[in-house]
Design a binder for these strands. Sequence first.
DNA 1: CTGCTCACTTAGGAGAAGATTT
DNA 2: AAATCTTCTCCTAAGTGAGCAG
Length: 915
Amino acid sequence: MASDSSDDDMPLARPNGRLSSSKISRAEDIALDKSVPKKGSGMAGLSIRNGPVENGDMDLDSPSTNGAKRKSRVSITKVDYNDGSESDGEPLAKRPRSKKVQESDSDDEPMVKARAKKLPPSYKETALPESSSDEQPLGVKLAKKKADIEKKAEKEAKVIRAKETKAKPTSKPTSKPTPKKAPKNESDDDLPLAASKKRQSNGSAVKRKSTGQKKEESDSDAPISKKSKSAGAPAKGKKATPAKDTKKAKSKEASEEDEEGFEWWNAPKREDDSIKWQNLEHNGVLFAPEYEPLPKHIKMYYDGQPVTLSPEAEEVATFWVAMMTAASTHHLDNPIFRKNFFTDFSDYIKKYGAKDAKGNKIDIKSLEKCDFTKMQDYWAAKNEAKKNMTKEEKAAAKAEKDALEAPYLYCTWDGRKQKVGNFRVEPPSLFRGRGEHPKTGKVKTRVLPEQITINIGKSAKVPTPPAGHKWKAVQHDQKATWLAMWQENINGAYKYVMLGAASDVKGQSDYKKFEKARELKKHIDKIRRDYTKDLKSEVMADRQRATAMYLIDKLALRAGNEKDTENEADTVGCCSLKYEHISLQPPDQVTFDFLGKDSIRYNETAHVDPQVFKNLKLFKKPPKTDGDDLFDRLNTSQLNKHLNSYMPGLTAKVFRTYNASYTMSELLKELGKDPRSRGTIAEKVKLYNDCNRKVAILCNHKRTVGAGHEQQMQKLGDRIKGLRYQKWRTKKMILDLEPTQKKKKGAAYFERDEDLDDEWIKEHQQFLIEEQRTKITKKFEKDNEKLKANKERPMPEKELKERLQAVKELEAKFKKENKTGKVEAEGRGPTVEKFLTAIEKIDDRIRILETQAEDRDGNKEVALSTSKINYIDPRLTVVFSQKFDVPIEKFFSKTLRDKFRWAIKSVEDAEDWEF
DNA sequence: CTGCTCACTTAGGAGAAGATTT
DNA sequence: AAATCTTCTCCTAAGTGAGCAG
């Protein structure tokens, strides 16, 4: 077709694989409209695969990754369709690691953890009333809500702009040539802090506080928030300024301990924030302890024979042993892990030696013949001993540890004491790459001072390296925030020692991140309008970009940089989606099924704009096939460059922050309408968490559901069922007292719940009987102990028998009940009223348990923490907490409160702060 | 551009610490 | 007091994106 004709001029984003033509002719476009082609092989319908891909082996090592090369894009022309993946549907969060697992059902548990399997009839069937929750197409469901939210966003954007124009004539030019670094800075201008830039000195006054409130000019350097609210009234300050000032003053000199000191968010912004510090002092890093060889008699056995490993090899063996002993041992079953480990282990043995009992060199040829159990026992015994230490010993150990790390805990950053994050050098171990990482299981070697670069103030004392060693380098880069750095041996990735999350620098950049996201509010409508238009562009690159933006915006996908497929797990983000990752179901549904960051599976079906649907079809047009890039003329830097033209500093990732925070903000607003928002603290917390959960789902933050989950649910379900049984019995007792109640209340009231069938009841009764029996027996024994302790004569067995009589009675009672279908009133002075209140109590308990169960199940594979920590503007939470009168501790743990100190302080009392 | 280096944020799981139940 | 479950902290892998040289 005509199309191919011009494949030229446009620069290609993707060097390999089958490409789309660079232009889309009108005719083609129209054709696409009508045709309902079923192009390429199995495109429609079900999502393809779940499985494997993976092509030959991946050996070949070569450096790569974080530090190293990224590239990739080799089109795998391998049509590896089959994989009888029945896949789908399952909640499965991650792809099982290898083909083998695929058939999962059988029982290869270790690797995949139970979760993958089909669940046994869950507690739901047995107990819970079933909460609306789970209909599948979550994406579909969320879509509508999102649409509303977006509409709102658009309106708001207009309002913001309107205000702004009024306030200041020439508002920011949207584009501007963007002189290299300029862009980035510029944006900050409204950031209080530090806003960057040099340039901006010019008068164009850049103020404009974010949420458009009336601004008093002073703003430009206004720090933040505080002012924003309190609008007119200077009232704001609660503990007000004076207090602050003193505090600040104090902090100046007493920089020592007042960690709470400096409130940078109230300080004037700095002009150049590329310089991160003027002076920086710290004590370097804490190295992992030396390896201590095992006692001579603890050995590995090979093929039944004891082996004396050289210390170097032995250390590597202990890495393995440590993992055998650990709680989760699944890595050890992973063939890639095993193979990589063994390759490295063999190398160590070759290099450093291993001898048999007679001192002869011995060849270790197979991991299967290596028997580490003796070492494992030793290790376990040691752990046990540690656990059994006395209180004093434990305290002493802790004191020693504390003393050891004390020097590294804090650094001094421009005179202020700041917490350091990871001052400990990563100890040697086996590399635990996630997903199908080709290098997982390799030995991550010990880091020597010679590999470490120190970054420190010029005038500061350089930490002394361990005796006999020296640092790789010492530098004084004021534009870097790290204190020490090295490269790891597996991938050449850079590792940095940086400040902790509670530090000022990290707080500042967190703050900036959210302000940037808020700034996007002002542009979002235009951006959306533009990409909607570009969905029809005849320039393929533009159309792809628009389509990608659509996905990033609506589905919160990550940008999707290229990766080095040889040396890293095969995962994708938006721009790196491949042909096989989406399937289209006319008229407008798209199913995504791919592994994202950390090999977490993204498997959602969404309704999309018809034009998007059409485009995706176009991007999958033959001859494209499995392994080819969906967006072959787009990459993240092009995308980001485009975004940057709307707003300095705008990148794909900002959308995730924006959408998460904005969504949270809208959801929380809606809560005001829920009556429960006036309920108990627990209820309010639950409501908040429900919102949080929606955001987490949007971002696809998952976690592995623990092995015990199903069981726990079962247990909870049983408890609930038991309560309902008790409730029914109580009702029956009412009848026992006043048969006339049957008419009054209606027969239905006294019906037994259907699921409480005879069989279950018998079982449950048996359980209750057992329970009582053990209770009584225990009590008896305990009483006897007591007597003995008091030197009194213990009660005879007979006493126990007598006491157990109650159990017999219970049994008899149940029997009778089962036979007659009646229940005798229990308790002293039973009255109908008493029973009624008892029933209410039971109902309450049931309700509590039910929400608990619901909650737990809803949470089973969703991780709330990631969004809370990284995506939801903490000020939203603070405001919510104030407005609804829930202590902030309910939402933020101690460390989170430290991390978000800036947020807590800057909007306190600001119930009207808005994202 | 491309390819590479480097810095910094985001992410889930392991393990420790607490809380609750037995 | 031990066992078990929950929550929090630590750990470090895996992303994003800037900037530079060719």
